[in-house]
Design a protein around this nucleic acid. Structure first.
Lengths: 126, 126
DNA sequence: GTTCATTGTACATTGTACTTATACAATAGA
DNA sequence: TCTATTGTATAAGTACAATGTACAATGAAC
């Protein structure tokens, strides 16, 4: 099982799958040439319909991460990072601020959040 | 206008409103006793139906941020931070990892992301 | 080269969630 | 007491998510 989903989440399953796979692709846990499980197998593992998995694969294929071909499956591609558009950076800051506020509201102390942020920042620079 | 929404966003409007207001509440930009605009006024400003704003206010009221009363409007409350539940911290790390991967995939350099994270971490510790 | 199981694709259907429309209930202030 | 202003409740329209089913493509076995 290469990922898990949460049926209680408000996020749609196909998006949960995309959001769980993308970090593995970006961080190199999944490498070019690797083969993802067939839609029917991953769907069975997750307990959802295979079309739901297919939709997730399709999104990642459109982003340039996967090559989908019948009878062969989903292959991880070599992918160049695109040029960033102007809005992306601003949106990123806003979304982070939203999430941090949500987590703080949930009772996580600011110090713990700050620690987590620094840890991730370090991980990015290696 | 105390906030803006993005009609192109995939996030539902009522959630955009919640996610835009919560940071203001957490960070103290909105203080106990402050009055939010009536649902009809904010809705008109945003170009949506007032029930959509009412739904957002209701969510924030359930979280303990607002007191809603007819004819008086939405008043910001004094609110204690709750005890954090066990899952929250782990979910936070996972969501951050997802968003960072998404932004990286969009072409923002890791160094820029790391800078943003550190900046937010600093802001949290003041 | 043919056959067939395996894989992704296409599309209709069903259920769920978002947004709106409309009517209602409560209440501060004149 | 009356009334305008405010939030509330509920149903309907619409779009989206997830599924069911049939199909198309193709690598492997022979």
């Amino acid at each position: 099982m290469i990922l898990q989903i949460n049926v209680d989440s408000e996020a749609p399953v196909y998006r949960q799958i995309v959001d769980a796979l993308r970090p593995k692709l970006v961080e190199g846990e999944l490498l070019p040439g690797d083969l993802l499980p067939p839609v029917r197998q991953l769907a069975a593992d997750l307990g959802v319909h295979f079309n739901t998995v297919a939709e997730a694969y399709r999104i990642l294929a459109e982003e340039g991460w996967l090559d989908l071909r019948r009878r062969r499956g989903a292959v991880v591609l070599e992918r160049k990072m695109p040029r960033a558009d102007r809005a992306a950076a601003g949106n990123f800051a806003r979304r982070l601020r939203e999430i941090i506020a949500e987590v703080q509201a949930g009772g996580i102390p600011a110090a713990a959040i700050a620690r987590e942020l620094r840890q991730l920042a370090e991980g990015l620079e290696q």
